[in-house]
Simulated assay, not measured.
Amino acid sequence: MSLTDFHFDGITIAYLLVGVIVTLLTVWYGRRNLREKGQSSRFYYTLLLFCAGYSITIFSTELKILLAGWEIMGFASFLLIVVDRNLTPGNKLKAFFIYRLGDVGLLLAMWASHHLWRENPTLVSLLLVMTASAQSSQLPFSSWLPQAIENSFTTSGILLATLMVQMGVFLLLRSMPFWEHQPSVRLLIALLGAVAAAMAAGFARLQTSLKRRVAYASMAQAGLIFLEVAAGFKSLALAHVAANAMLRAYQLVKSQGTGNGKHPVQQRAKTWEDRLPIKLQYTLYLIYMKEWGLYSRLSKYLKA
């Protein structure tokens, strides 16, 4: 690994600025929050490991360097989740399973780019899209983020809901030369983003925990950014990434002042569902409550 393996462009600048701001906010908030719980030293060592992986990833110019940073960052993210020792083993395994699945997709994409690119470029692109979907908590891997954020410290949740989720978008932006001339892949990215954004927006409206609402809101915005990337709007996607990260970090910090992250019941504004027949309204409500069965399906494979 040499200096020629890294490079500095607009994508790197945007993610570097967002990373610095979010990290400083996390350190400032964790200084007074984690000290009371006796977990500050453990958290800051893990944060340094996360920042190292994040930096290697955003400065990388090729998949093998990106994979090295990706592995470090994924391992550090898992440690950030389990800083809270009260997190149940099942939730630990679900997050770890999604990270490993994304790593496998990236590893296979790197291998296929060397051996199968000329014969089957679509395969490489699909593997990259799978990895990005897993990292950004998009379909069909959308159930791990709310569970991880809800059952971890707010300091860890800030990093997961801002920097970690947006790394899937970074992978799509960095790998755009692989798939930008493949209409089928662009359509797939757009469909994944649109469906995930619509579903996550519905899920968020029924949550009583502010942490879960922030998690679903971050997923919904990541889905919209997928749409922007598929349409080729790089600058808009980068601005959206920065705005979403700042907003989610602010919301998570403010959530600690609302009574253990619980959202008070407020009068709900009328929505388009109110115009549907009452039975269909109840059906949609139950589907949203059960999150389309995504979490239960994943739990079948990862029983605590």
Rank of each mutant, 00 (worst) to 15 (best):
Q281P: 01
H240V: 07
I287H: 04
Q281H: 04
K211R: 15
A222W: 07
L280H: 01
L236M: 10
L227V: 13
P264A: 14
I225G: 03
K270C: 01
Q266S: 13
K254I: 10
F226R: 04
S235I: 04
V229L: 09
A249K: 09
P264L: 14
T208E: 00
F226A: 00
A242R: 02
R268E: 06
T283H: 04
T271P: 01
Y282T: 09
E273P: 03
R248H: 15
L252M: 13
L206M: 05
K254G: 11
S255E: 11
L206T: 10
T283K: 06
K262Y: 11
A230R: 02
L224M: 12
Q251W: 15
R212M: 11
A237G: 04
T258Q: 13
T258E: 15
H263F: 06
N260W: 10
R275L: 14
A239P: 00
W272H: 02
K262A: 11
D274I: 03
A215W: 08
T258G: 02
Q256W: 01
S235L: 12
D274S: 09
A220I: 03
Q207I: 06
A220D: 00
S218C: 04
A231R: 09
M246T: 06
D274C: 04
V214P: 02
M219D: 03
A242Q: 06
Y288R: 14
L227H: 02
A222N: 12
I278C: 06
H263E: 08
L276I: 00
F233L: 15
P264Y: 10
A242F: 15
H263T: 03
L227W: 01
R248D: 14
L247M: 14
K234A: 11
R212G: 06
Y288W: 06
L276M: 13
S209M: 09
E228F: 12
G261D: 07
K254A: 15
T271I: 08
S255H: 02
A242T: 09
E273K: 03
A215H: 09
F203P: 03
A242D: 10
V265H: 11
Q267C: 04
M219G: 03
Q251K: 14
R268A: 05
I287N: 01
Q267V: 12
D274L: 00
R248M: 15
Y282W: 08
G232A: 10
L284N: 12
A222Y: 08
N260L: 12
L280Y: 03
L286H: 15
A204V: 10
A249W: 09
D274R: 00
T271E: 13
G259Q: 12
M219N: 04
A243S: 10
Q221G: 08
G261L: 04
A245N: 02
A242G: 11
G232M: 12
K270P: 00
L284D: 07
A217T: 12
Q256K: 02
K262I: 15
Y216G: 05
T283Q: 10
V265E: 14
V265F: 13
K211I: 14
R205F: 14
Y288C: 08
Y282C: 07
F233S: 12
R268D: 02
L236D: 13
K211L: 13
G223C: 04
Q256I: 02
Q266N: 10
L284G: 12
A237D: 08
K262M: 15
Y288I: 00
G223E: 05
I278F: 11
A245W: 03
V229K: 02
K211W: 10
Y288E: 08
